[in-house]
């Protein structure tokens, strides 16, 4: 029963969406599925919040390694929740000045907006920016021309890295100037313009990258179809977990 009901729900929902997509008369079924999804997602938020609190509160009470981070997580979570739900700093709407709770919690100047602008935004941007340091360190240690494939990758990376900056334009201009000292540009220019680093980068992205990506996308799409069918028909039950009872 524990496995049959979820299997039935997954199969029914999947087939409803497939029918809704291919049969015009059943087009509205998909809309109901989306409504159900939103309701379940809203409940999942509450469950997620509860789970986050219980996990981290246990870590704090047991004083496990890194419990200080859990404390920061819990305090940040509760503070944001209280400031948002309590609408701290939210002014009543102009049309209904007597209804103090009717303002938007996200409006400029509200407590929630302050948290978003001055805490969440810089923290999120910082986390993303740190990637540049790790990518640089990894490139220094691991990006080696060990074989032909790696060398091709390396040369391509150089072209794209340069082609994505002003360096490509500068190098191209210098090369043009040098060549024009020797031969009339009218003769060679039409033939070698495509070899400028910025143009080469465009070619790599538009031709080689697109061809590879297209092949991968088609492969992924076929894989999704086969995996989805296996899930809908109950052949693949791994999403239910490993408990066979």
């Amino acid at each position: 029963m524990k496995r049959t009901v979820p299997l039935f729900l997954a199969a029914a929902t999947g087939f409803v969406l497939i029918v809704a997509s291919f049969v015009p008369a059943a087009g509205s079924w998909g809309k109901y599925a989306v409504d159900w999804f939103n309701i379940l997602a809203a409940l999942a938020f509450v469950l997620g919040g509860g789970s986050l609190l219980s996990q981290h509160l246990k870590k704090i009470s047991d004083q496990q390694a890194g419990w200080g981070y859990s404390l920061v997580t819990v305090v940040s979570f509760l503070a944001t929740l209280v400031v948002g739900l309590g609408k701290f700093g939210v002014a009543p709407p102009t049309l209904h000045p007597d209804k103090v709770w009717a303002g938007d919690y996200k409006e400029a100047g509200s407590g929630f907006s302050w948290i978003f602008d001055y805490l969440y935004t810089p923290l999120a941007a910082t986390m993303f920016s740190i990637l540049a340091c790790f990518v640089a360190s990894a490139a220094f240690r691991a990006f080696r021309a060990k074989n032909v494939e790696a060398t091709i990758l390396l040369v391509t990376a150089f072209i794209v890295l340069l082609g994505r900056t002003y360096a490509a334009i500068w190098i191209g201009d210098q090369a043009d100037w040098l060549a024009s000292q020797v031969v009339d540009p009218a003769i060679w220019h039409p033939y070698v313009t495509g070899l400028r680093l910025d143009k080469l980068t465009e070619t790599i992205m538009d031709v080689f990258n697109t061809a590879g990506t297209r092949a991968i996308m088609i492969g992924i799409a076929l894989g999704i179809v086969s995996t989805s069918l296996k899930v809908l028909l109950g052949v693949d039950r791994s999403y239910l977990g490993s408990d066979d009872r």
């Binding site: 640089a136 490139a139 220094f140 990006f143 080696r144 390396l154 890295l161 340069l162 900056t165």
Partner: peptide, 11 residues
């Protein structure tokens, strides 16, 4: 990007 290229070359 120039730094990245430099690091890869040195590596």
């Amino acid at each position: 990007h120039l730094l990245m290229i430099g690091l890869i070359v040195v590596g």
